[in-house]
């Protein structure tokens, strides 16, 4: 057993345990943290498979950004634990059905891949696939890449438009106007003679 294989088993075990934790832990904040750990150890497995860009992108996008917002929402929601357990038996058949379908799909995918005997594609970039990835993304797959970017931009604008509400009577600060204020219009300096203290009575 090589060191790499050992690492793989370690990371895979952590991923599985963390994923189990996501669905079994009662505290929702703990569950979200387990999800973070799942993402992180998945990224580690991808690193072992020499998919550096995917691995780091997973950490940057999901661990660094998406899960932070997720954690925020979960912390603020203050979910009660009892109601969560109520429908467990009622929804169990649906859950099992979905899980079974997903398992079948995955097995079919692995089976198809194994039958097709696709040889592992040679790494076209030698030991660095990130330069190759960047170049391919901006030449061969430029159109899909730009469509994806456009869709994401539209999504951002839509999200802003959905939540943006104009309220009447809100007072805004305009820093440019604040800076341009002339102090002479705001402060009046009054010159007056100094007060003379009362002489103590002799």
């Amino acid at each position: 057993m090589t060191f790499q294989l050992l690492c793989f088993y370690a990371f895979a075990a952590v991923t599985t345990l963390a994923a189990l934790g996501v669905i079994t832990l009662r505290n929702s904040v703990h569950a979200v943290l387990c999800l973070v750990l799942t993402f992180f150890s998945t990224a580690a497995i991808w690193l072992l498979a020499e998919a550096e860009f995917l691995a780091v992108a997973l950490v940057v996008v999901y661990v660094g950004a998406v899960m932070v917002l997720f954690l925020f929402v979960v912390m603020m929601l203050d979910i009660k634990q009892e109601p969560l357990r109520e429908g467990f038996i009622r929804y169990l058949p649906v859950g099992i059905a979905v899980a079974a379908v997903m398992l079948a799909e995955m097995l079919a995918l692995i089976g198809v891949r194994a039958m097709a005997q696709v040889p592992a594609p040679a790494n076209p970039a030698g030991d660095s696939n990130i330069a190759w990835l960047g170049e391919t993304l901006f030449t061969r797959f430029l159109l899909p890449f730009e469509i994806a970017a456009l869709i994401l931009t539209v999504g951002i604008i839509a999200a802003v438009a959905l939540t943006l509400r104009r309220r009447e009577g809100v007072r805004h600060q305009d820093p440019a106007r604040q800076v341009a204020v002339d102090p002479r219009t705001r402060v009046r300096v009054v010159k007056m003679a100094a007060e003379r203290g009362q002489e103590p009575a002799a």
Binding site: L33, V36, E52, F53, V56, A57, V59, V60, V63, G64, A65, V68, L71, F72, M75, D127, S128, I130, A131
Partner: peptide, 22 residues
């Protein structure tokens, strides 16, 4: 000497916020 060194840095600095939130 990572080829994704810059991205790795971004990933690591973005992880620091968990300590603060938690």
């Amino acid at each position: 000497n990572l080829n994704v060194g810059l991205l790795y840095l971004l990933a690591m600095t973005s992880m620091g916020v968990y300590g603060i939130i938690l």
